[in-house]
Each structure stands twice: as structure tokens, then as C-alpha cells.
């Protein structure tokens, strides 16, 4: 896995087919808790499945497809990975770094 910790984007900025690793979740505790439950934990690998630049989008996280509102996807920060060398093991992602 090649990871570029320097660059952080909103999840909504990933294009279809691109991979990213979750860096931070912004929002109320309820929102964060619902996302974390679905597998959006720090370091988890996420793949953009559908993103037309407006409206809701679909991502793949931990083998499941999840639809998110664009607003919600703006509150999830990811560091993009280079797609062609993507690893298939999310557990190898960097450790939790605190706040």
C-alpha cells in the first residue's frame, strides 16, 4: 500500500474507482457513531463507487455498499491512495493517531 498522509481530501472529492483511507470524521457524536458502526473507522479503506459531482454518492467500505448524502461525505476526511497498487487488507492501514 502506498499511502500519502500529507494530502487530505473530503470523501466527496474522490472520483469513482479511487481509494482512500479514513483520516477524520467531523460532526456530532450521533453522526460519528453511526458512521463508525458501519466501518468508517480511522485507517479504514474506502472506495468511491459512484460520484456524479452532485447529489448523493455510493462508497464501498468493508465489503458493503453505503449511500451517503453529499453533505455527509464532505464531513469525512480521507487521504487518497494510488489506485493501481491498492492493498486488499484494510487492517494494514496506519494506526489511530489521536487528535
Amino acid at each position: 500500500m502506498i499511502d500519502r498522509p500529507g494530502i487530505t481530501l473530503a470523501l466527496a472529492q474522490l472520483r469513482p474507482g479511487e481509494l482512500g483511507y479514513i483520516r477524520a470524521l467531523r460532526g456530532g457524536r450521533g453522526f460519528i457513531s453511526r458512521l463508525a458502526t458501519l466501518g468508517f473507522t480511522l485507517g479504514a479503506e474506502v472506495e468511491m463507487v459512484q460520484n456524479y459531482g452532485r447529489g448523493p454518492l455510493i462508497v464501498m467500505i468493508r465489503d458493503s455498499r453505503v449511500a451517503l448524502g453529499r453533505g455527509e461525505a464532505m464531513h469525512i476526511l480521507v487521504s487518497p491512495a494510488i489506485p493501481q497498487v491498492a492493498s486488499s487488507s484494510p487492517s494494514a492501514a496506519p494506526a489511530y493517531s489521536g487528535d
Binding site: 470524521l25 460519528i32 457513531s33 463508525a36 473507522t41 485507517g43
Partner: peptide
């Protein structure tokens, strides 16, 4: 520790990763 919610969920997913490591071929 307001951010702990992510750490707790992360801990559970680490357990999940250990459980599936040998059991799943993707």
C-alpha cells in the same frame, strides 16, 4: 475523550480483522 467513540469502534473492528484474517479468502 469525546473522540473515544471512534476508538471504541476501531477496537471492535480490529477484533473483527483478527477473526477474519485466516477464515476469508477474498
Amino acid at each position: 475523550h469525546e473522540d473515544a467513540v471512534i476508538a471504541v469502534a476501531g477496537g471492535r473492528y480490529e477484533w473483527v480483522a483478527r477473526m477474519v484474517r485466516a477464515a476469508v479468502v477474498r
